[in-house]
């Protein structure tokens, strides 16, 4: 399952003609994202209210912080009552919760998942590791600052943060959205080259298009 699947290759058509296949070009749409204008005035406000009250979360649970997300669904914390729900697919989610440290390997997946979400999208970074690498700050294999790679709306500090802290973080996010400051997706589009450059600097085996739709 290595890189050979994205290398150019030649296949034979049913008629016997050779066909050049360049997977990255032929299989993937790699149009760069565009910054989207927000609607004007009250409509945008209303929309932001709806966005803030309906947070569909994509939980990226590879770090140890992931364990703190689960209790949110339990009767004790019951995040549902705040309009927070979990979705299993990035397509439908609007909030990306990245739980804790990110190894170089998982960063690629995080980027892909992030890019597959639709604008507007918000990122909640969970735990100290996402701020400065935390206890792994000098590790050979983890990133230090998440917002070098994608715009982060809310950091929830702690190693690890309690579910209460998470709830507080979500509350903060709601405020940010309602105030119209949740424009991470546009920021990403506007500074796309910088983000991509950072990502590519750290991810050596880059095997995907520059933007994952």
């Amino acid at each position: 399952m290595g890189k050979e699947y994205i290398e150019k290759r030649t296949v034979i058509s049913p008629e016997g003609n050779p066909i050049e296949v360049d997977p990255l070009k032929d299989y993937f749409c790699d149009a760069a994202p565009k910054s989207c204008k927000s609607a004007s005035g009250i409509i945008e406000k209303f929309a932001n209210w709806a966005r803030s009250e309906s947070l569909w979360v994509l939980g990226f649970g590879t770090g140890c912080g992931a364990i703190e997300m689960r209790p949110l669904m339990t009767p004790r914390f019951d995040a549902y009552r705040f309009g927070i729900q979990w979705r299993p697919t990035p397509r439908q989610a609007s909030v990306f919760v990245i739980s804790g440290y990110l190894s170089v390997k998982t960063l690629k997946r995080v980027v892909r998942s992030y890019e597959q979400m639709q604008n507007p999208k918000f990122v909640v970074a969970l735990g100290s590791c996402t701020i400065n690498g935390g206890m792994y700050w000098d590790s050979y294999n983890t990133i230090n600052r998440l917002d070098h790679y994608m715009p982060v709306d809310v950091y929830i500090a702690g190693c690890m943060p309690r579910p209460e802290a998470l709830l507080a973080g979500f509350d903060k996010l709601k405020h940010i959205i309602r105030e119209g400051r949740g424009e991470g997706a546009n920021k990403y589009a506007e500074n796309f080259d910088w983000y991509k450059g950072n990502q590519k600097k750290i991810i050596k085996d880059w095997d995907m298009p520059d933007y994952n739709w």
Binding site: P23, F28, T89, R109, R112, Q116, D207, M208, N212, W213
Partner: peptide, 9 residues
């Protein structure tokens, strides 16, 4: 291939 594939391709 622009499908969500559990963060893979």
């Amino acid at each position: 291939f622009n499908i969500v594939f559990a963060a893979e391709r």
